[in-house]
Amino acid sequence: MIVTFASSKGGVGKSTTCAAIASALALEGERVLLIDLDQNRTLDRWARKAPIEGLTVQAIEPQKFGSYFREQEASGAFDHICIDLPGNREVTLFKALARSDLVVIPAQASEPDLREALVVVSDIRDVAETAQRAIPYRLLLTKVFPLRSRVTDYAYDELERRGLPLFRTALVERSAYREMFLNGQPPTVTEPGKGAGQEVLTLLAEMRSIVEASQAEMRKAG
């Protein structure tokens, strides 16, 4: 899978989700490349604290993304590539979207976050039209309160009203997501089979299902 994690707004859990999914894949024995394009280099620093076998994290400058991606994809060294995009709209965004099997758009259940998520959705649709192929994407609600609130209900109602696809899985506000950047340990290690660890695995299973269905549809159409 080639999975891009995109948001034009900071603080939505984009890098956290990318790291959690990439590490979960590696811990299952897959060979994973995580490309850190975020200007803060958060994932590059995180990976140095507790390296995971099978997970390669590489921070690169956005202008070098195209050539680096082509080289790594052609090498056959990786089963999956996860891309953590910069927290702003620039040309690298469109290059990554065009190469993606799935785009994950993290957003909190708030009006500003959903508005920014719609910007990313518009970009995906433009790239898909230009590339003349479907680019699967889903919004991922993050930092959700354990109990439903009026704010959460607003988010679900707004997404339904706009007909935007949403992951069934949501990431609840949990300390394991914050602590992973302190100790380097991903949620599937610190909370195996429960809490954040189970959420990540459930999300990963849903992502795989979406990609497999999309690829099957493409083969059928081809």
Rank of each mutant, 00 (worst) to 15 (best):
Q63R: 14
A128D: 07
L34I: 14
V104S: 10
I124G: 05
V119F: 04
I135T: 02
E111A: 08
P86G: 10
I81D: 00
V104I: 13
L33T: 10
L37W: 03
A47H: 09
C82N: 00
R48L: 15
D79P: 00
T142D: 01
D84F: 02
A98E: 07
C82H: 00
A107L: 03
D38L: 07
E71V: 00
L85Q: 04
L27V: 08
P106H: 07
E53D: 12
I60E: 07
A74G: 02
E71W: 01
F78A: 00
Q72I: 00
D79S: 01
D44Y: 15
T92D: 09
V127H: 06
Q63E: 15
P106L: 11
G87Q: 04
V32N: 03
A24P: 00
T42M: 10
E53G: 11
P136C: 09
D126S: 12
A107M: 04
L114T: 06
V103S: 05
L93T: 02
L140F: 10
A59G: 06
S67I: 15
L27W: 13
N40T: 15
G76I: 00
Q108W: 03
F65W: 05
A24N: 05
V91C: 02
V103D: 01
A26F: 07
G29M: 14
A134K: 08
K95D: 10
K95F: 06
G66K: 13
D38W: 08
L140G: 07
G87N: 09
L33P: 15
R48E: 15
F69A: 02
L34S: 09
K143G: 02
P136H: 06
L141G: 07
Y137S: 10
N88Q: 11
Q58Y: 12
P146L: 09
K95Y: 10
T152N: 12
Q63T: 14
F145I: 11
V151P: 11
L118A: 10
V127G: 08
E71Q: 05
A134S: 13
A107D: 02
A109F: 01
I52H: 06
V119T: 09
R89H: 08
L85G: 00
